[in-house]
């Protein structure tokens, strides 16, 4: 059984009122339990892939398919994709003053439960679990009362993304450069969080520039994305090779 199946995906964005192709026929298959790292030079389409998977407006899929657990995601709104178990950890999480992290998390959990016909969790239980997770990620639990990402450092924002990942428990996590802007300690903490998320029924797509993340989160597969296509796939050793040689020998 495949968790995520991307086939022949072609995606345009609008640049100067003309369509500009970004993804040019991308294939990717993630089975439950697997971690796939996607590496590639700047401008290769890595973040586009993450955003298109999550349904961000502004991208046009011209060809191909995206399936999660066999169901097509292409016609689904971002919230419906989340309700089916997809989670995007943002490269640049937004700051939203006036809505507390706690309100946001509760609204999210309630929406997911409602869509799945489950009972909405009790507020006290959510607070308890969020506090515990915050502690484990070195986030001051008082942040729950503060506005969403308000005044957070880059590292705190990324840790908050991982906190949400662990609280919302999706089937598939797409991490868009979660390691960027992290110091060594934060990288370790965030990696531990992602490793805790790993389970035989869950999948991870890890988008990164740097091999060092993959020392902490060991992937099952490494893919090289260049000019809108996956041009090379291999195991974790491919990342080491890329680190040593750069991308030029492939492109």
């Amino acid at each position: 059984m495949t968790l995520l199946q991307v086939e022949g995906l072609k995606v345009d964005i609008n640049a100067d009122d003309a369509p500009m192709p970004i993804l040019k026929g991308l294939d990717l298959e993630v089975k439950p339990g697997e971690v796939h790292a996607i590496m590639g030079p700047n401008g290769s389409g890595k973040s586009t892939l993450a955003n298109v998977l999550a349904g961000r407006p502004g991208y046009r899929v011209t060809q191909g398919s995206i399936r999660l657990d066999g169901d097509s995601l292409l016609d689904l709104a971002p919230e419906e994709r989340a309700q089916r178990g997809l989670f995007l950890a943002f490269q640049y999480p937004v700051e939203i003053p006036g809505v507390s992290n706690m309100e946001f998390l509760k609204a999210s959990l309630d929406s997911l439960a409602k869509a799945r016909g489950e009972q909405q969790p009790a507020a006290a239980a959510v607070i308890g679990e969020a506090r515990e997770l915050a502690n484990s990620l070195d986030l001051d639990p008082s942040f729950l009362k503060r506005g969403v990402n308000e005044g957070f450092s880059g590292g705190e924002k990324k840790r908050n993304e991982i906190m949400q990942l662990l609280l919302l428990k999706p089937k598939l996590a797409v991490l868009d450069e979660t390691d960027s802007g992290l110091d060594i300690d934060a990288l370790q903490t965030v990696s531990e969080g992602v490793n805790r998320f790993r389970r035989e029924d869950r999948g991870v797509v890890l988008i990164t520039h740097y091999q060092r993340l993959l020392e902490h989160i060991v992937p099952d597969y490494v893919h090289v994305l260049a000019e809108g296509r996956i041009i090379q796939s291999g195991d974790k050793d491919l990342a080491l090779e890329l680190e040593a040689k750069g991308y030029a020998w492939l492109t």
């Binding site: 961000r56 407006p57 971002p78 919230e79 989340a82 939203i96 609204a107 929406s111 506005g147």
Partner: peptide, 22 residues
């Protein structure tokens, strides 16, 4: 902001209400 909230499963009308409240 809308995308951040909807990507967490919150439907557009609730996300709009939550963000305007914020």
């Amino acid at each position: 902001e809308m995308f951040y909230f909807t990507s967490r499963g919150i439907a557009s009308p609730e996300a709009t209400a939550l963000l305007s409240r914020g």
